[in-house]
Structures are given as structure tokens and as C-alpha cells.
Amino acid sequence: MKKTGVGEFEEMVLLTICVLDNSAYAFSIKTEVEARTNRKLNISAIHTTLYRMEDKGLLTSEMGESNSIRGGKRKRMFSVTPFGIKSLSEIKATRSKLWEDIPAMILKELKS
């Protein structure tokens, strides 16, 4: 398996961006991940993860619109690059391969 270099939290953020489709920016990603995982996150943690993934080429970004809550500052809208999608699917393929190879007995216990 080729190493994708995508961590667990990064994978989650990536998937969330996919889910959010065109409205993914730091704050919306934060609330989405919080809602889905029941975890409290810091916005700065999201920022560092986003910029790191952008450097890796998993994400691309462009400036979006702004509003008064944001103090007139624009949003940076993120979207997953083809390389990001590829990495995600690689991860998924590895996982499903693993799931497939689990012996039936243990699989039964896991499912119950």
C-alpha cells in the first residue's frame, strides 16, 4: 500500500469538506465535525490542519464572500483536489480490503 500521509483527523476533515461540498470553510468544517463526532474542537486546530493539507496538495482554496459576523473578512472556501480524492479512496480501499479479509467468526462478533 502506498503511504498517503493522511492522518485520522485529516481524513475526517477531508471527508467533511466533501460532505459540505461548496460551503466548506474553517468555521463550517468545525461545526460539522463537532456535530458528527461529538468532540469539542478549536478553530485554530482546524486552521493548521487545513493549511497543512493545502501544502500537501490535498486541498485547494479560494476566497469566498463575507458577512458582518465575520467583521467583513472573507471566507476561504476549501475543496478537495483530485489528489485528495485519490488519497481518500485509497484509504477507503485499504480499509475495505481489511474488512473483507477479517475471518467470518470475528466479523460476526464485530457486527453484533
Binding site: 468555521f27 468545525k30 478553530i43 476566497m63 465575520r70 467583521g71 472573507r74 471566507k75 476561504r76
Partner: peptide
């Protein structure tokens, strides 16, 4: 201006 989103995100986060 290329990094203004950080401030904006923080403002929004702060508001909620």
C-alpha cells in the same frame, strides 16, 4: 488580504 479569512473565522467562531 490573502490571510484575512483567519480573522474572519475567528470572529465567527467567537460570535457563536
Amino acid at each position: 488580504s490573502s490571510t484575512e479569512e483567519i480573522e474572519g473565522d475567528l470572529n465567527e467562531d467567537f460570535y457563536y
